[in-house]
Simulated scan of single mutants.
Amino acid sequence: MAEEKRRFKIQIGNKTYTIVGAASAAHMQAVSRVVNDQLTQIKAAGNLSTETAATLLAINTASKQLKLQAQVDALTAQLKELKSEVQ
């Protein structure tokens, strides 16, 4: 059964975006809060345009995602190994 998609309006910086997805409203509010917080921190670090700050935020996010995926992969391999030892 496919997940029902909903529309969410979120404010990032001074712009409103409509997001379509299966996430909950609480999740999208949390995403909006995290993005705004990180965007504010990046812009405060220097005299950056919103475009440059957004690009740096995207790079930071992709880097974190890759690190987390590596952790998930390592834990999945470890779990597979432990399961085979138990059997």
Rank of each mutant, 00 (worst) to 15 (best):
R6V: 10
A70G: 06
G21T: 02
L57C: 11
A25R: 06
Y17T: 00
G46E: 03
V34R: 00
D73R: 11
E51N: 05
I59R: 04
A30L: 02
E81K: 15
F8C: 09
A70E: 13
E81Y: 13
E3M: 04
A70I: 03
K83Q: 10
Q29C: 00
A58G: 15
A58L: 15
K80N: 11
L68T: 07
E4L: 04
A58Q: 11
D73C: 04
A58P: 08
Q38R: 15
R7G: 02
L48V: 13
L75N: 03
T50F: 08
L48I: 12
R6L: 14
M28R: 01
A23H: 11
M1V: 15
K9T: 04
L68D: 01
N60L: 14
I42W: 07
V86F: 02
I19Y: 10
E85I: 05
G21L: 08
I10D: 00
S49G: 13
A77F: 10
I59V: 14
L39Q: 10
I10K: 10
L48H: 07
Y17G: 07
E4Q: 14
D37M: 09
A70T: 03
K5D: 03
H27Q: 13
V31D: 03
K43F: 05
T76K: 11
L82N: 14
G46F: 07
T55C: 12
T40C: 11
N36W: 06
E4I: 09
V20Q: 10
Q41K: 03
M28P: 10
S84N: 11
A26R: 07
T76C: 12
R6E: 14
H27F: 03
A30E: 04
T16D: 06
N60W: 05
T76Q: 13
G21P: 01
A44K: 02
E4R: 13
N47F: 00
A26N: 06
K15W: 06
Q78E: 13
E3R: 05
Y17M: 05
Q11S: 06
A22G: 12
M28A: 05
T18V: 02
A22N: 08
E51Y: 00
K9A: 04
K9S: 12
I10P: 04
A25I: 04
A53R: 07
R33M: 04
A74H: 08
A45F: 06
Q11W: 00
N14D: 15
A53D: 05
Q87S: 07
D37G: 00
A22S: 14
E3A: 08
N60G: 12
S32P: 08
N14H: 13
